[in-house]
């Protein structure tokens, strides 16, 4: 077990803007840290530098208080699951899982014991003789995880391991993976661009954009207290509403946006003149799309709530002041003063 830290790490490919631009962050011992960000923001590149597959342009990687920047991958005692699973196509499932053990020269009997252990944890018992091409996407992913697991590594690096599964399998795989990580307590860095995955699994989330960390914190901190408009609009579906007033952007979550009449006069709230345009019924909840001034905003209500306004007619809405978040209109950075 070990903590993982990157210090001021940079990766520049050719003349392009840096793929990773002075990122510093730490995954504590045993922590499940999620790297979340849109496609192309540098998540994979950062993970590959931690794994030793990509030499950083500058900066350091520290694992368990040892600077490993110049050590090859095999010396770092990490396991990595690639976005593509990278199974060895010429080997059976059994041999794929055995591969890292053979590399370490683990005794044969011990190998079999560990392979059986990993296979039973991941439900691969009946598949040991198959070749990767005879497996479904979900099964391949489990083989990749089993192979990562058998070595009992100090650190897990997972690059979008669930992205190839259908929604149903993904939910259960998410659950299994998280339980599994909790039970073995290995420091895990998990890359995803799926915010539901990030919110549900991470002890902490680092939100990345354009090669920089925009915010790092618990899922709740990231959701409730976004550090800037990028984080505010990247998380939540639908994301935070932003309404420009003067030099500030006034941000609020759709679930906090409700008719002014419902608000208690004792609790201060901010008023908005809302024109609802369209209703979307989603089973457990309904979304009301509309405009404040000429900016699009969304309100979210539980499906069971009776709504006492009608589509197309302006209505006074409000948001409790404690739920308001303010951002500088120019830079998008969070401002902690109430305008």
């Amino acid at each position: 077990m070990a903590s993982v830290e990157v210090r001021e790490i940079v990766k520049q490919f050719g003349e392009n803007a840096p793929a990773v631009d002075h990122i510093s962050l730490t995954a504590q011992d045993g922590e499940f840290l999620v790297l979340l960000g849109p496609s192309g923001c540098g998540k994979t590149t950062l993970l590959r530098m931690i794994g030793g597959l990509e030499p950083p342009t500058s900066g350091d990687v520290v694992i368990g208080n040892h600077v490993v920047t110049h050590l090859p991958p095999r010396a770092r005692r990490i396991a990595m699951v690639f976005q593509s699973y990278a199974l060895y196509p010429h080997m059976s499932v059994h041999d794929n899982i055995a591969f890292p053990l053979r590399a370490q020269g683990t005794p044969k009997a011990e190998q079999e014991k560990r392979i059986n252990w990993a296979a039973s944890i991941l439900g691969l018992d009946g598949l040991m003789k198959r070749k990767p091409r005879q497996l479904s996407g979900g099964q391949r992913q489990r083989v990749a995880l089993a192979r990562a697991l058998v070595r009992e590594p100090s650190v897990f690096l997972l690059d979008e391991p669930l992205s190839n599964l259908d929604a149903q399998r993904r939910a259960s795989a998410r659950d299994e993976l998280q339980q599994f990580q909790r039970s073995i307590g290995t420091t895990t860095i998990y890359v995803t661009h799926d915010q539901v995955e990030a919110m549900g699994m991470g002890d902490r989330i680092a939100v990345l954009n354009l090669g920089t960390v925009r915010q790092i914190g618990t899922p709740q901190e990231i959701y409730d207290d976004p550090a800037d408009t990028f984080v505010a609009t990247f998380l939540g579906s639908p994301p935070m509403n932003l309404v420009e007033r003067g030099t500030m952007l006034h941000g609020f979550r759709p679930e906090h946006f409700s008719p002014a009449a419902w608000h208690d006069a004792a609790n201060p709230f901010e008023r908005f003149s809302f024109v609802p345009h369209r209703e979307e019924y989603l089973g457990a909840e309904r979304l009301i799309y509309g405009e404040v001034g000429d900016e699009k905003v969304v309100a979210r209500f539980p499906a069971t709530t009776q709504l006492d306004f009608s589509i197309g007619h302006p209505v006074e809405f409000g948001v409790a002041t404690r739920h308001m978040r303010y951002f500088d209109a120019e830079s998008g950075v969070r401002s902690y003063e109430t305008p």
Binding site: G51, L53, R74, A79, A86, Y88, P89, F99, P100, R147
Partner: peptide, 15 residues
Amino acid sequence: PWDIEEQAMIDGYSR
């Protein structure tokens, strides 16, 4: 795929 070569390096082999 490059991946399987890199995977083998992660799994404990030199290049």
